[in-house]
């Protein structure tokens, strides 16, 4: 899975209330949730996002509640991948479960600025920064998690496995 897009940079400890405030949890439709993505951080944030853009964050992205609506809102906003220094544990799981790939870049995040153009190869674990010419290598996403992403998330993945006689 390879995507190219423009970076939207956010800081450390972005919690699930910042990603999708509780007042919008009345639906589980990604498109609806996507309209309010990051509204707890900056009202109207999503308006600057083009389909295919890439979210880059600092430490502990997605901390707070276990709401599965947070990765859905990001997907709904048209963002296909999130890169961060580190992710909060339950968010990390929920991301892949909902079909949103996440890559942990560690300190290398500090070399990326808002507006940079990146190509992210999730399968190989390679991030190419076209604005600086740098290449970042990280641990690639394991095969079964890629399968899960290809199935559109955990619900689709389990459907497939059960359908395949597993």
């Amino acid at each position: 899975m390879v995507v190219t897009g423009t970076v939207h940079l956010v800081g450390d400890h972005i919690d699930t209330d910042a990603i999708i405030p509780a007042r919008f949890l009345v639906t589980t439709d990604p498109q609806e949730l996507g309209k309010h993505c990051m509204e707890g951080l900056t009202p109207g944030w999503v308006q600057r996002v083009q389909r295919g853009d890439i979210l880059v964050a600092g430490e502990n992205f997605g901390c707070g509640s276990s709401r599965e609506h947070a990765p859905l809102a990001i997907l709904g906003a048209g963002i296909p991948v999130v890169l961060a220094k580190s992710f909060a544990r339950i968010f990390y799981r929920n991301g892949f479960n909902m079909g949103l790939p996440l890559l942990e870049l560690g300190e290398a995040v500090d070399t990326i600025a808002d507006g940079h153009r990146l190509t992210v190869d999730v399968t190989q674990g390679v991030v190419e920064n076209h604005s600086t010419g740098a290449q970042i290598h990280v641990q690639p996403v394991p095969a079964f998690m890629l399968e899960m992403l290809q199935a559109g998330g955990l619900v689709g993945y389990v459907r497939q496995r059960l359908g395949g006689g597993a």
């Binding site: 276990s66 599965e68 339950i90 799981r93 929920n94 479960n97 955990l154 619900v155 993945y157």
Partner: peptide, 9 residues
């Protein structure tokens, strides 16, 4: 502890 969908799977 995990989310409900994780436990469902």
């Amino acid at each position: 502890g995990l989310g409900s969908t994780d436990v469902a799977a």
